[in-house]
Each structure stands twice: as structure tokens, then as C-alpha cells.
Amino acid sequence: MSRMLNLVQAINEALDLKLADDPRVVLLGEDIGKNGGVFRATDGLLEKYGEERVIDTPLAESAIIGTSIGMAVNGLIPVPEIQFLAFIFPALDQLFSHVARMRYRSQGQFPVPMTIRTPYGAGIHGPELHAESVESFFAHTPGLKVVVPSGPYDAKGLLISAIEDPDPVVFLEPTKLYRAFREEVSEGLYRVPIGKAKRVREGEDVSVFAWGSMLRTALKVAESLERERGFACDVIDLRTLYPLDRDAIVESVQKTGRAVVVHEAHKTAGLGAEIVSLINEEALLYLRAPVKRIAGFDVPVPFFALEDEYMPTEARIRAGIEETITF
């Protein structure tokens, strides 16, 4: 059985199912209990599982991640929520110095399985520092996995996989997509594997790599380009940003000979650079054009009156793909 759910409902269902399925799973974060989370991702879970398992914490992000580490080394599977991605900055010491390294430092003696959920990205016209897209910080940190769903079905399956993963996962939920659309989501527990990208549109002319809310925008552009100019895009939703799905990236580029990476994070040292390098290492001789990056500009994410133009627009993505194909 499946129903039409939006992304935030799919997240809620994944959490609900894992709380029911595994007594070790504990949620903690700011306003996640009584309030059900500022985006309602945890709506109804406090009532269902009680305040020992769905914990409204004081307002302290370092403590949310720091205590999650202690819980994890002592047998629980914490799923901390950071209210907005930029609010994780006070907790980066915990994340980089401990979450990512505890398994390594203890040579496997104290793994810290946890899934850090946080809304990320621009597009909902929030206040300053509610729209960051700093996934490359985490993708530069050995020991972490970084997962980004771009739709409700994947969101549920990936979150279940993340909670079941023996390693810590930074799970980035595209804020813009929480209620943007609905799709068929199966009932019950199912998994979408971490580390596997997904081809969402088949094409021969150019590979387009994207994730999160940019996947939707890139897909729209691909559709109109095919309709209007007959260009066929091979659109790949990366879904896991660390470790990347090398095979999916390389196979697609070997087929198309051209590639465009679209991300809303800043361009410089963004994940696009890593994907370009991977293509350079593994598929250079297949290329018929330079690999293009369409990214957020290298400015601090601006106040929301300018936000829509900061993010790669359909026009920019379209121009980038056209330039690459007609190079």
C-alpha cells in the first residue's frame, strides 16, 4: 500500500516506524516534542513514545550532539535534530572532533551510530542563517556520511537506512521541498541504500548531477531543453554526497561525454569541485566539453530578498547545459 505524502510527512513516518521498531532509537532536539518540530517533522511522536524517547532539550546544539555521542557509546541510537543547518556551527567541535573520529580513535571499540537530521538550503525566505548549504564541510570529514533526499519516497527510505547505519550520518533535509509536492510513499519499513545515486531522467547528450532541491530545478530545465531543443539530459540524483557513488557518475559521463554539476552551495571548494575531479580522474578521455559547475555564488547566503537569485536559477542552469552541449 502506498499513499501520497510530502517530504516532511515521509520523514515523520520514517521516525515513527524506527521508534516503534527499535527501542534503542531516541530523538532529541529543540522544540521537537510538544511542538513537533518547527517544520512538524516530529509531530505526534512525543505523544506516542513519551518524553524519554522524544526529548525536548534545552537550547544548546553542542550539547545535543555531545550528549548524543554519550548515548551512542552506551548503546542507544540517537537521532538528534538541529533546527536549521547553520545552527550546527556551535556543535562542529563535537561533530568533527568526536562524532567523526570516535570509531577510529577507539579502533572500533566505541562506534557512535547516530543520524543528525537538519533542514538545509535556501528557498523558503527565512531569516539570515536559515538557508545555508554547507554539505562540503561534512563531505570533507572522514568518518561521516552525508545523505540528501530530494523527494518523499527517498527521504523515508534513506532516513531508515541512516538510522540503521553503523556509522554517523548527517542527514540534510531540503527545507524548500518539505511541503513542495507529494508522491507515492510505501507504507511500512523500506530502505533506500546509502551510497547509491539514482538516474531520474535518461539521456545521451549531457550528464546533470544534482541533489536536494536543485535536483527538482535541474529536472525542470532538462524537460524543457528536451522539449524545446531536443537535448537529452541524463539527470542523476546523487542522494549520498559522502561517499559519492563513483560508478553512477563515471558511467553516466562515459555515456554522454559531457557533464554539468548543479548545487546551491557556494562554488569554490563546493562538492562540484570534487565531482569534476572524479570525472577528471576516471573519465577524462570521454569528455567532449569542459565539466561545468552551476552553483550558488561565492557570497554569504544573502538575505531572502536576494535569495532566489543566489541559488542557481532555471535560466542559469539552462545556459550552463546549453553551453556544455554546444561547446
Binding site: A63, G66, S68, I69, V73, N74, S97, H98, R105, Q109
Partner: peptide, 30 residues
């Protein structure tokens, strides 16, 4: 820094005070 068998001694924390929170979390789990 392996913990001896039958004990739960975490590796020494180098960043100052960060592990104080870990103790709180482990107590929570207990």
C-alpha cells in the same frame, strides 16, 4: 587507548571539556 575488558573507559578527550557532554549522554543512556 583501548578500554580494558569489562570496563567502559573512553579514549582521553583532547578538546577541552567536550567529553563532559559525552558523560551526560552516557548517563542518559544508562
Amino acid at each position: 587507548i583501548r578500554s580494558p575488558e569489562g570496563r567502559h573507559i573512553l579514549p582521553p578527550s583532547v578538546p577541552i571539556a567536550t567529553h563532559v557532554l559525552h558523560a551526560v549522554g552516557a548517563a542518559w543512556a544508562s
